[in-house]
Each structure stands twice: as structure tokens, then as C-alpha cells.
Design a protein around this nucleic acid. Sequence first.
DNA 1: GATTGGCTAAGTAAAATTACCTAGGTCTAT
DNA 2: ATAGACCTAGGTAATTTTACTTAGCCAATC
Lengths: 226, 226
Amino acid sequence: MSQPGVPDLVRILLVDDHPMVMVGLRLLLEREANFHVVGEATNAKQALPLVRETQPHVVVLDLDLGEFSDNGVTLARKIRTFSTTKLLIVSGNDSPVLVQQLLQHRIAGFLLKEEAAETIVAAVAKVSTGGLAYSEKIQGQLADRAAGSGFFALSKRQQEIVICFANGLADKEISDQCNISVRTVQNHASVIYAKLNLGTRQEVSTWAWRNGVMLAIDAFAVGNRH
Amino acid sequence: MSQPGVPDLVRILLVDDHPMVMVGLRLLLEREANFHVVGEATNAKQALPLVRETQPHVVVLDLDLGEFSDNGVTLARKIRTFSTTKLLIVSGNDSPVLVQQLLQHRIAGFLLKEEAAETIVAAVAKVSTGGLAYSEKIQGQLADRAAGSGFFALSKRQQEIVICFANGLADKEISDQCNISVRTVQNHASVIYAKLNLGTRQEVSTWAWRNGVMLAIDAFAVGNRH
DNA sequence: GATTGGCTAAGTAAAATTACCTAGGTCTAT
DNA sequence: ATAGACCTAGGTAATTTTACTTAGCCAATC
């Protein structure tokens, strides 16, 4: 078909919650002679079989989230379980926690929508030949990942408590939900304050919302044990 | 030029934070013979002079927010002060508070990105002839606007307190920032709880984040008096 | 002129949260 | 096995937040 590593025809699959954006991407990409959009999906359920069937070189995964069903992180992980296709994330969202999660799944590129349109064409070309394509802003986050990864430095239980705080629950409600005593909840809270360098549940809640924890929640459905 | 009310050439101005999305929109719209994109702006500062110069029939305002500088609500209001051009909002965000704010500025249409791509072409055509084009989801919000407009049922001071809560401030900090006593802050809090039917500052904070109050904040920079 | 609603402030009392401490059991890695 | 991290739970005490009430001032409205 083509020289290894440098396909002269790049097979592309588009995944986007927003059909309106997807059409734009398709038109943009198909202006390139050697780009071929082999499929489109508007959600994770459609996307998985399409990856198998169409065998794309590159999956352009545009996650604006918004839909709480199956988010981009989950989809990326699922694709990774059976395919080595290049994953190119295009997102309007650069919440540290979200970025952090995505980067754990061998992603070839991560672009922000605020960048020039030509960037995505160049990025697709680059990742299709095995390269990496990260926005500068994302690269910046890699440098000081301490900021956003604070959440992942917490234990499962601690993460759970943070999410409960951000959901507006009182200690008593948390203790009921988690089947632990109020005192234990409060002790977890203390540890969380120390780790995140915050002082009150209020601040933890705000921190969680600001840093996109509430957007990126995935496997943390409150109530998980063990 | 054209019959009044039914221009055979529709002059369109695109405003979008995300160049990547804008190019897609342009390509999409320019497939229509009688659509002419007369300008593009990536922020409010660029947009205002362009509206004056290009005299568009329709301004397609794509606000994914994200930028905290000058948001879509502010821009819509500014345009309205000197122009009667049709405003067509395209947004991925349907937070009740945001929608509520925008609808106060004689907007001809409000579409969500999750809708079919053809929708925007039809919507531009419709608003250009004086029609209205709202997504069903948005229309739904108009019906039960009680949900999101709760915020606007609050007084200025009360809105300010809500935002302070959502910013994680304690009563003492709020009292300092607003130059009122702690007791007064607490009294405002009580009224807020009653109006929003919530019980704690925690819940207010979560409510504010969930309902997009923290995204739509505009003229409420904390500290405003009167 | 009276009523309504908002902003301000305070009192009393109860409830929730936080700081700081001890302490046993589990699990993992060295 | 020994150290370290986590989960669990409790004690004491201080601080913060909430509930409910009264009350003066001001502006808009009827």
C-alpha cells in the first residue's frame, strides 16, 4: 500500500460529539489530497466498531465532553485495548485533570481548538508518520503537572471525599454514603487539606470544579469501594 | 440590492474563539451559493469593528467561552448597542444561566453544536429573513426557565454572595471583601437558601458551578456595590 | 401614606466543621 | 520483618456556620 511509516494515503476516523464541528473538520481535512476520512462517529458507541471496521491510521477524537455518557477518556482507553491506531485529541477543554487522564493512554497528539486551523492538518500528518503533536499549552502542563495531578496523588478514598465535597455533601451525608463514621470522613478531610494545601471543604470544592475534576470524573462514580 | 426582508446575498460575519471550528463553519456555509462570509473574528475586540465595517446581515457568534476576557454575553450586548444585525448563537454550552443572559439581547437564534450540521445553514437562512431559530433544547429551557433563572431572581448582593461561596470564601473573607459584617453575610445567606431552596453554602456552591453561573459571570466581578 | 423588599446589624442557641492528637489493622515494598 | 501509607475511629477544644428573631434605614410601588 505504502512505505512503512509514511503512508501516502492517511485513513482518518472522526469522532465528535458535535456534528456541526465534525462537518467542518471533514471539509478541512479533505482539502488535503492524501487525507481520506473513512468514517464519522458522534459518540463512543458508534466509534468503537468503526475503529475495528475502518482500520484508520489516525483517530481524531474531538471531546468537548458535555455528554456524561461515555467520555473521551473512557473511549481512548477502550480503543487502546485493541488497536494501535494513532489517537489525536482535539479539545476545547484543557482542564489539568482531563489532560492528565488522557496522557496515560499513549496519545499521539493533543490540540486545543483555539489554535489555528492549519495546525490540525499538520498534526494529522505528523502523527500519521509516528510523530507527536502537542499544543504548547499542553506541553506547559506537562512541565508543571504538579498542579493538576494533585488529584491523582490522592488515594481512592480521598478522591471520593473530594468529589463528595464538590457535590455539596455534608460530612454526615458522606459518612452514610460511604459507610464510615463522621470522624473518619473528617480525618480524610484533614489529610486532603494537607495534600492539596487547602484549608476548608469550601476551597476543596472550588478547587475540584476549577481544575476540571468534575468534568473528568470517569471511574470515580461516588460510592466505589476497594 | 435585494428585496427587503429577503436578501438574495446573505452577508455573514463569523465570531469564534476557536479558529479550528471557524474554518469548518466557513467552509460549511460557503457551500451555499447565496451565503457570503464577509469577515472572521476570534475575539470580541476584533468583532466589534468588523460588525461596523462589514455590515453583516447575520453574525454567527460561536461561544465556547473558555476565554475569561470578554465573553459572548458581553459581546452580544455591545453589538446590540449600535447594530440591528441578526445574532445567531452557536454554542456547545447550554447552561441555563448562560442561555438566560443571552436571550435578553434580542437574539435571532440559538443553536447547540450537538445538532446536525445542516441545521446551521437552515438557521442562517431563516434568521436572515427575520425568522427565529432556536434549538429544541433551548426552547425547552424557555418553558421551564424557573430552573436556571433562580440566579437572576436574586438581588445583586445575593448574587455576589453566591459567587463568593462558589469561589470557596468563608463568611469572614466575604465580609472583608464586601465591607459588611459577618452577620450580614450570614443573613444574606439565609435569604439565598430560602430562595434557591438549598440548605448550606456547600449546596449553593455546587448549584452555582453546575448551573454554569461560574461560566456566565459577566458584570458580577466580585466586589460590585449598588 | 402604607406596604413591600432589600441591605444592614445583632442576639441566642444549636449544629457542623476544623485542628491536633492517639491508635489498631491492613497492605505493599524494601 | 520493618517502614510507610492508608483506612478506620475516637477525644478535646476552638472555630465556623446555620436557624430563628428583632430592627432601623432606604427606595420603589400601590
